[in-house]
Structures are given as structure tokens and as C-alpha cells.
Design a protein around this nucleic acid. Structure first.
Lengths: 287, 287
DNA sequence: CACCTTTATGAAGTTTTATTACATTATTTT
DNA sequence: AAAATAATGTAATAAAACTTCATAAAGGTG
């Protein structure tokens, strides 16, 4: 059975155990993987200055049935890398699009990439801490204005489903009022892409004075909010242009929210399933 | 440059435009992509009961140089799917997780997949229509309750950035009131994952009576809302368990929202850039 | 250090696979 | 129903992959 185990990686790993002339071929492949796909054995033999038989032998040494299988594997490897490495830059600006399909690709790639990038900078320790803090909180306040306010509301809804006391405050007045009443048993989830939103900063200052724990969710990097937070969560910061208005970062932030929500729910598995089930039923009956 | 149109998708898309005997081959490939990689032209011809020449012609019709290129492409497609397909089924239920990393993977893969799946069922024509309708609307009403209400608010914020009159109504009362005032120059964007939310149905009924256009955003498939809508947009319906509470579909819906928003913004490129710029400035000054 | 053994490589031939050119059959049009 | 056009298949050709066997290089042994 054909396996997708990254052909190129396999070659790189095993190259040193090959015979000298086989190594010549392996190295050529490592350096020109894309080109190989267009080359026949005889041409490749010529470029590498080895015989065709050597190439076949190399394929076998690497565990492939033959040259064809090697090529298929390399093609698969390349596509896998490509999938994960698409040039994010190329598409981060709003353009004048002539085709709907281009818009779809533009937006979708941005969103997919932002989730992937967020994943690449994730700090598992911080996620775990955040989950624990939220899990043991008496009340969870969620602060965020503008686009982050939408996320805050999403958090409130999610935690409501598993019967947690969680309230979103998308406006400064509500934030300040609530922060004033918090205790050391409570937690604030502060959402701000820039990490510099004044309203949120003012509010968590008060929350902190009252002993509440602060969890921040911002773009990657130091900011006034991260400096005040007990635990910092980050969403991809690669989005360059607010001009694009695409706000892919928001989707990455939601992904993080989903993660910590799932973490809390899973820590209380039995209970969570029960609540989710009754939430589901009560929504269904409304129809 | 990265393209979503990997070999298999290309085949699926174009299969219907092929000549009958070529279709036989295309269908076989779609159903047994993995197997193709091990088959020679003559063997494939035999299984499909067509001539070898037909196969070559099909490859050309699909835009490949020949059979070899097609095979390489399929191999690449499969690996790409594999990269993103990792055990989707296995993880669609909330579990008791022992490792934070498992939670992160669980949630992230679900979210990535839901965007991907949404893309695979996208109807470009409908997207284009939706963009045109929204672009020319005097006022845009966005209806959605619960989780969809959060999305509705997101839409409002997005369109506000490019200076469109767009209002979210996450509650039934507001929806009904606004619907009563709509005209045939207006558009309603109706968001409901199930497509059966009573509040939304009631509201768009009134909007329709007043001549407003209806665009729906629901899970894939027929529903009461889609039947009333002029244009139907769909987000992946693969999410099996409401129990998971992960609501990956929401992220897929946001992706669709981003797409139509970007479409409208791009149709008015100069203007949009201007508004986005002034939005950015005014937010910045607040800090 | 000459001889043998083992290992590595290449040249030429064989088989398989892909592709082309042309013939035949079906389908449409007038 | 005949002519024109499109679709498909057959058989020949070209190209590629793979095998076999010969030869050369390296390494060890009496």
C-alpha cells in the first residue's frame, strides 16, 4: 500500500547511507524536487552523471518500488509543504478582484493561514493555565470593544451553554461597573487585537485591584494589556493591513476561544454533556 | 502560487463537461483516486471499458499534459487532503482530554475542516449574486438569533467600516419592527444554522411582503429559510454533534461573511479603501 | 604485492507504459 | 436519408522504466 510518508523527508534522512553515486542523485533531488517531476530517468541520469540503473537502485534503497513511485511521493510531499507554507503576504491586501473565485480564495486562504499561524505560536502551558483559571472562576467577565466585542459575546454564549456565569461587556461603562464588583475568585478575559485598547486597560486595572485574575487575548507580542495579564494568549499577528478589513485575526481568536472553552468543558465532561444536552433540547423546542 | 484547484477538485468540477466515455474515466478516478496511482493507462482503460486514447484525451481536456501529469497531481491532491483530513470523524465529539495539545488539535482541525468543507460546496454564482444584491441595497438588515446573532453583529460592524447602512437585529422584536419598514430597495441577510429558526422565518416573511430581497446563510440543504430566500449561501453541514458545542460551523459562516464583505468592498475599491482608512484613523485616535 | 572477493557502477537490451495517427462508429444537421 | 461532425477505438510508434550482465573499483588475504 502506497504511503504518503513525506518522500522528501525520507530522502533527506537516508541520503547519507546511500552509495556515493546514489547520493549524487539524492542530493540533486533534495535541491531540485520540483524539477524532478518533469524529468525522465535518462535525463536525470544525464544531469547527475550516473547511470539509469543507479537511479533505480537508489529508489529501491529508499524503499520505493521504483522511480515512478518516488516521483508520486515527491509530488505529494511538495503539495503538503505548499499547503502549509502559502505566501501569506501575497494576499493580505484588498484588491480589485475580477473573479468571484479569486475573492473566495483570497479570503479563505487568509482565514486558514491565520488559524495555522496562531497554532504555530501557541503556548500550551498558557492555554492550560487559562483553562484552569476559567474553570475555577466564580464569575467570568469578558471585555472587548468593537470587533473584539463580538468575540466577547461569543464567549458569553459558549460558557452559558455549560452553565457558567460569564458575561460579556462590549461597552466601557458596563466594563467599569462590573470590574468594580469583582473579587479574587473572579476572572477577566480581556480581548483586544492591538493589546492597547484604552477602555479595556482602564477596566482591567480596576479588576486587578479587586484581586481578579486577568487572561488576555491579543495579537502576538508585548503590549500594555499583556503586561497587566496573569496569562497571555495570542492570535496570529501576521495580518498586516487593517485596510483589507478582512480581519482574519478574528477567526484565529475564535479558534483560541473554542480551545479554552473546549478545555473547560472537557474538564467537566459529565456535567458539560448534561448541560449541552439540555441547551440543545430547549433550543429545539423553540422551533 | 497556491491554488485550491488541486487535481481531484479540478476533475470533480469539470467531469460534467467531458464527453461520455471520458466521464466514465473521470468518475472512476473520483471514486478510486488512490488506486489510480498504481494503474497504467492500459489497465485503467480496461477497468473503465474505454480505449487508452480516450484516457489521454480526458487528461488533455482537464488541462493536463498527459496521464503522468494527472497522476502526479492526484498524488498531490491526496496528500493535501490527508494533511487537512486527519481523522475528522474521530474527533467530532467532545471527549475527556488528557492533554492540552489534544484539545488544541481537536478544535483547530475541526475549524479548519469546516472552512474547507464549506469551500467545497460553494456556489460561485450565488456568491456573486449575493454580492451584487448587497452592493446595491439601500439598507441591509441582518437577522439571526443566538449564535447566529453574534454573526449578525459581526456583519453590521464589517459593513459599517465601509459606510454601508447595515443593521443587525439579534432579537425577534427588533427584527419584526425593522422588517415592517423595509422596501424593495432593501435586503435582508438571514442567518440561521438550521435554516428553521422561527423568529427569522417570521421576520423575513414580512420583509418579503415589503419587496425586500432575501439572502440566506444556513447549513447546506433545503430548509424553510432557503425556500423563502432569493439567494442561498451555505456553510458546511458536516458538523455532527451539537453536543461538542464547538460550533465550527460558525467559523465557516464567518468565512462566507468575509467573502461577501470583501466582494462588496472590492466592487467599490477606491471608496472602500478611503472609508477603511478613515475608520482606522478614528479608532487609532481613541487610544 | 599479486590474487581473490566483494562492492559499486555503467552499457545495452527488454519490457512496460504513454502517446500518436488513423480508422471506425455514433450522432447531429440539413 | 445523406452528409457532416463528433466521439471513440485500434494499432503502430515513441518514450520511459526496469533488468541483466559485464566491468571497474575497493578492500582484504596469503
Amino acid at each position: 500500500m502506497y504511503s504518503f510518508f513525506n518522500g522528501l523527508v525520507k530522502i533527506k534522512e537516508s541520503a547519507s547511507h546511500l552509495k556515493p553515486s546514489e547520493q549524487k542523485v539524492a542530493n540533486y533531488i533534495i535541491n531540485h524536487p520540483q524539477e524532478i517531476l518533469d524529468l525522465s530517468i535518462s535525463k536525470l541520469a544525464k544531469v547527475c552523471k550516473v547511470s539509469e540503473a543507479t537511479i533505480i537502485r537508489m529508489c529501491r534503497s529508499l524503499g520505493f518500488k521504483g522511480f515512478k513511485e518516488l516521483k508520486l511521493n515527491i509530488s505529494a510531499s511538495l503539495s503538503m509543504n505548499e499547503t502549509l507554507n502559502t505566501k501569506y503576504e501575497d494576499i493580505s491586501e484588498l484588491k480589485y478582484f475580477t473573479e468571484v473565485k479569486h475573492i473566495v480564495d483570497f479570503v479563505t486562504i487568509n482565514n486558514l493561514k491565520s488559524i495555522e499561524n496562531t497554532l504555530s505560536i501557541i503556548d500550551y502551558g498558557a492555554v492550560e493555565q487559562a483553562i484552569n483559571i476559567l474553570d475555577s472562576a466564580r464569575k467570568i467577565d469578558v471585555y472587548g470593544v468593537g470587533a473584539s466585542g463580538v468575540i466577547a459575546i461569543d464567549v458569553e454564549q459558549k460558557f452559558a451553554r455549560i452553565n457558567r456565569w460569564c458575561q460579556a461587556y462590549p461597552d466601557n461603562h458596563g466594563q467599569l461597573t462590573s470590574a468594580a464588583h469583582l473579587t479574587d475568585k473572579d476572572t477577566v478575559l480581556a480581548i483586544s487585537y492591538s493589546g492597547e485598547t484604552q477602555e479595556v486597560i482602564d477596566s482591567i486595572k480596576i479588576a486587578k485591584q479587586n484581586g481578579a485574575k486577568i487572561i488576555s487575548l491579543t495579537k502576538y507580542g508585548k503590549s500594555r494589556i499583556t503586561q497587566m495579564a496573569d496569562v497571555c494568549l495570542f492570535a496570529s499577528s501576521l495580518e498586516k493591513s487593517i485596510r483589507s478589513g478582512a480581519m482574519a485575526s478574528r477567526i484565529a481568536q475564535l479558534n483560541i476561544i473554542d480551545i479554552i472553552y473546549t478545555g473547560v468543558a472537557s474538564k467537566n465532561y459529565e456535567e458539560a454533556v448534561k448541560y449541552l444536552e439540555s441547551t440543545r433540547k430547549s433550543i429545539k423546542n423553540r422551533k
